[in-house]
Design a protein around this nucleic acid. Structure first.
Lengths: 193, 193
DNA sequence: TCATATGATGAACCATGATTCAGGTTATGG
DNA sequence: CCATAACCTGAATCATGGTTCATCATATGA
């Protein structure tokens, strides 16, 4: 089924350049950047883009996979630090901040945040990310510093609702409220009316 | 400067139809609905749309003003009920729910939520809304059921971050977390680590 | 070195959608 | 009942951007 025939040298080089250019352009200008712009950045003709990626969507998904991969690595690193004795709530919060900043500064992620539910990430990549986030959540719950009913869905909710095009001060405020909501009731219900 | 020359009968009728059609179409299909679609719905030719509204943006803004007006009325009604003795937190929460549902179900509001910061609402309409929300906030703060540092910005933040295209269950969950964040620390800091 | 499969090119094609305008209608005041 | 200013119509114009394909170039194995 698959063709493993090794790419011709120039083709391999172009493929790499295209992916780099696409990443650069999509992160900086968003998924709505014209294919022409990506082609120019890569130093090839549009036709070449289509030889390597049948549609624009495929290219965008490829770029997103890279971006999500980076976030997943950050989550894993945080979880590792917790295992090594770091404060779970501190690591959890720090990771959340990274997610927020990424969603706001990386136009690729910003778009992804808006359309999650679409077939954005491969099952494989996704499950790796979920595993890492689960480690973070479980550690924080064991520590008793977040609501015991938090789940992966809440993490997605966090990502999805980052106020991406608000000024930094506004985002910081949102972060505070959101984290407060994640912690609320962690120890007691004393704030209920 | 302004021209008060009364519109010709047919022109007035068309203007009305156009506004109705635009409201219907934009609320149902979003601001990206083609002008053609609005014209057809209104039973006029595109040219007529442009006679009454110089650009699409003007038409969209007009529709948004209507929508915001409706929300403002809801806020005022809630504030009135509080003045009449109703629970502030209950009214506040109920109003928040209305906002959420509107943002999710009305594609015009959904788009507005995404681009707030743009010149969406007239200063006049806006201040009326802010006045109503301030009444709600003040009452809830006086009651001691929300964080004492909540402000108008937080209300915008709420509106802006509604997870508009998630399934209802997800939105409800978000609502719970968000309201928890709004209340957190209202009475005590007992939930701090 | 050569044949040729693989790869590259970019103008052309197609679709969508905002906006315009030349020409045909009609409400309305006199 | 007219004259005519206001209106309306909708095909045409522009602009954007994804995708294709006939044509040309070259990497590579024999």
């Amino acid at each position: 089924m698959g063709e493993d025939r090794p790419l011709r040298a120039d083709a391999a080089r172009n493929r790499g350049r295209i992916l780099e250019a696409a990443t650069r352009q999509i992160m900086a200008r968003g998924p709505e950047v014209p294919m022409e712009a990506i082609a120019e950045d890569a130093g090839v003709a549009v036709g070449t883009l289509y030889r390597h990626f049948p549609t624009k969507q495929v290219l965008v998904v490829a770029v997103l996979a890279e971006c999500f991969g980076a976030l997943t690595s950050a989550a894993e690193a945080a979880a590792d630090r917790i295992d090594a004795g770091a404060s779970a709530i501190a690591e959890f919060t720090a990771f959340a901040r990274i997610v927020m900043e990424d969603a706001a500064g990386n136009l690729a992620m910003k778009a992804a945040a808006r359309s999650l539910g679409a077939d954005v990430h491969e099952a494989e990549e996704r499950s790796r990310g979920e595993a890492a986030m689960t480690r973070l959540l479980d550690a924080a719950k064991a520590e008793g510093t977040v609501r015991p009913d938090l789940g992966i869905e809440d993490c997605y909710l966090f990502f999805i609702t980052v106020p991406v095009d608000q000024p930094p001060a506004m985002r910081d405020r949102w972060f505070e409220l959101m984290i407060a909501g994640f912690r609320a009731g962690a120890v007691s219900r004393s704030t209920a009316p």
